[in-house]
């Protein structure tokens, strides 16, 4: 009942929509270039492949931003993405950006340090966005967004995100179909913010399992007890629901205190594509 293939996607349909989305929405902003931070992981690899296909590789700037403790393997895998897509590339180390901060906060735990690194990368990408005249393409998938497994104003920051409605297992499927290199498809997902970190180790469950649960709860609107009846442990269901709820703040712009009759965020309603 759980593994019934409901998360399977037709990669060609997804590819068509997502490359058209990138091309059309970047051109509506009056631009023709994209900037993507490439970590060596599957999500940023897929975003880079899609952007290169949508805009032409010469119009995509792939930026590697290692920290001194980043796994060398990540850098090599990012290199594979650059070679295969033919995107323009740049490497900007963030070590010298974040170390002065860390000297001020010697007691900071890995989470604080990881957040600072993610935000330093955001600063680099948005700076390159101006220099390269391109929009920052996001790399966050639906699983991460729902679970809040992301740094606010860090890796969650982008101008547009082609992956935000694909679960991690769907990202894997699409990445395979567009030609993301095999070593990247095969390795364990990691934010690589500290040594030997893996997403699934940190979260305490596999993406495959949580994606199936999220699909029922979010897409199919199952009630918690229905998800339990479908074969998921109650404690797992409750934990995932709690994570989704607790991280709603990461999915929203800052809330504005309403005073006037017309307030941004409540009754000043326009799409970003307004007038284009």
């Amino acid at each position: 009942m759980i593994s019934d293939g409901k998360l399977d996607i037709n990669p060609e349909v997804a590819r068509k929509i997502l490359t058209s989305f990138l091309r059309e929405e970047i051109s509506r902003a009056g631009l023709s270039h994209a900037v993507v931070g490439v970590s060596g992981g599957i999500d940023s690899a897929l975003s880079c492949f899609l952007a290169a296909e949508a805009l032409g590789p010469e119009n995509v700037l792939a930026v590697r931003m290692p920290y001194k403790s980043s796994a060398p393997e990540s850098f090599e895998h990012a290199q594979l993405v650059l070679e295969q897509t033919g995107a323009q590339s740049k490497t900007i180390e963030i070590t010298s950006m974040v170390e002065p901060l860390f000297e001020h906060i010697p007691d900071a735990d890995p989470k604080r340090r990881g957040n600072a690194m993610a935000r330093a990368r955001m600063i680099v990408l948005y700076d390159q966005s101006v220099a390269f005249r391109g929009l920052v393409v996001g790399t966050g998938n639906k699983t991460e967004i729902l679970l809040g497994y992301t740094t606010l104003f860090g890796d969650s920051a982008s101008a547009l995100n082609p992956l935000g409605d694909l679960y991690k297992t769907q990202v894997r499927q699409l990445a395979g179909a567009v030609g993301v290199p095999q070593p990247i498809l095969d390795k364990a997902p990691t934010a690589d913010l500290w040594q030997d970190q893996t997403d699934e180790g940190e979260l305490g469950f596999t993406y495959e399992r949580v994606d199936q649960l999220l699909y029922l709860l979010v897409d199919q609107r199952y009630r918690p007890e229905e998800a339990v009846a479908a074969g998921f442990e109650r404690s797992f269901v409750e934990r995932v629901i709690a994570l989704v709820r607790a991280n709603q703040f990461k999915r929203m712009p800052p809330i504005v205190a309403k005073l006037s009759n017309r307030t941004v965020g409540y009754d000043f309603l326009y799409l970003r594509d307004w007038g284009t």
């Binding site: 989305f21 935000g164 799409l271």
Partner: peptide
């Protein structure tokens, strides 16, 4: 055809 923000 086309897009409006993320809607295709």
């Amino acid at each position: 055809a086309g897009f409006e923000d993320g809607l295709n």
